[in-house]
């Protein structure tokens, strides 16, 4: 079972790729666990965007592009997409 993580902007720059397919052991996981998995894979991304299991204040995640989430305990179901991006959308 997988969660597809889509990275945008600075998170994409730091990870060096746009999409990451993460394996999850159960039907669902949580945002905090995904952040920890990404930290192992992409130390530069973690340094810029994460703080332990949390997103740094300048960043936010979205489930499937519909709901924005920040809490590390937010449930993410296998098969869902998780978008990670800058929290500020000023243009």
């Amino acid at each position: 079972m997988f969660v597809l993580v889509e990275l945008f902007g600075i998170p994409r720059q730091r990870a060096g790729q746009a999409v990451v397919k993460l394996e999850v052991c159960e039907e669902s996981t949580c945002l905090g666990n995904i952040v920890l998995q990404l930290t192992k894979l992409f130390p530069d991304l973690a340094e810029e965007c994460f703080e332990g299991r949390r997103l740094q204040t300048g960043y936010i995640a979205s489930i499937g592009g519909k709901t924005f989430v920040r809490s590390p305990d937010t449930k993410i179901r296998a098969g869902e997409s998780l978008l990670v991006m800058s929290a500020d959308s000023g243009g």
Partner: peptide, 22 residues
């Protein structure tokens, strides 16, 4: 800090792909 890194490194045009996805 992290709140402005987007503007410093990519600029406001980095909204493009996020907005497109949403």
């Amino acid at each position: 800090g992290p709140e402005t890194v987007k503007y410093r490194e990519l600029g406001t045009t980095s909204n493009m792909l996020v907005f497109n996805r949403l």
